[in-house]
Design a binder for these strands. Structure first.
Lengths: 146, 146
DNA sequence: CTATTACGACAACCATGTTGTCTATCGTAG
DNA sequence: CTACGATAGACAACATGGTTGTCGTAATAG
């Protein structure tokens, strides 16, 4: 299964470059979570639903991201139970850098394979995969329990 | 990145079918480990080297596989320190079934995309990824520590 | 024979996921 | 307005999988 390897190679290159640009403590997971937060995962419970994990797991992940300074929690004025998760400046910067690096990596693939082949590859993958993109349970899915 | 999603879709379909054929307790990791064992991962230390994890981690994984009845350990007559890991009949069967299901899944992709496109996709991926295929540290790599 | 290397086991620890329980708060049905 | 069900988040206990470190024992190199 080359797909995992391809993913891994890309993500490794992304994070190597990200480290050079000041985000050495980012992990592959973090990027996914940060993106999910910008797409509506405003609280731990929301994030859990979005990423198909329990709210507890989402909460722990947010803890980690908060420790690293990529997000912070602010109380929701309309609902004292909720704590809204927001990207810090550092968190937003990491997403910007990631997007930029992704573009560069794609350009490299285009140079290597040709724009036509790459576009065909992307089309084929889109065709064979479901549209719902976010899933965080990779560690548990890959290894975990039944 | 669609690659992870494509991998995930395929692996999920593989394991759904595998479950129907009597291997419901297999996890994605297990298949990789079993394959690695047939490719020379005869002991915990070997396996660790092959999969780029510590021998302790490999040992724990073998423990799990042994509990599930996919492998068993036999003492090495030439080296009393070593314990050779062997696939049980059940373990070998799971690999056979997996190979068969993979062929079926590839055939489905070929019907969907056309044999030419699929072959092009495979060529392109091979071109863009390193040849070394085995890597077990996915959970730790994806989420784990820095 | 001795010194180094290597194997496997054990322990402590971190990261991630799970379920279950608890309190506080929201929202709505009555 | 009150009471009850649903929800947010915190905490605890546990399983998996990864790490490093230590240790006893066995193979091997000098």
């Amino acid at each position: 299964m080359r797909f995992l390897l391809a993913f891994r190679v890309l993500i490794d290159e992304l994070h190597a470059e990200l480290a050079r640009r000041g985000h050495a403590d980012m992990r592959p997971m973090h990027g996914i979570v940060l993106q999910a937060i910008t797409r509506g995962g405003s609280t731990a419970a929301d994030l859990g639903r979005l990423l198909a994990v329990s709210k507890q797991a989402a909460g722990k992940t947010i803890d980690g991201l908060e420790r690293l300074g990529y997000v912070h929690r602010v109380p929701d004025p309309h609902d004292t139970r909720r704590k809204i998760v927001r990207l810090t400046e550092r968190g937003a910067d990491s997403l910007e850098q990631s997007a930029r690096i992704f573009d560069e990596l794609r350009a490299r693939w285009a140079r290597e394979l040709g724009e036509d082949r790459l576009r065909a590859l992307e089309d084929d993958l889109r065709r064979m995969t479901p549209p719902d993109l976010f899933r965080l349970d990779v560690p548990g899915w890959f290894g975990g329990m039944g």
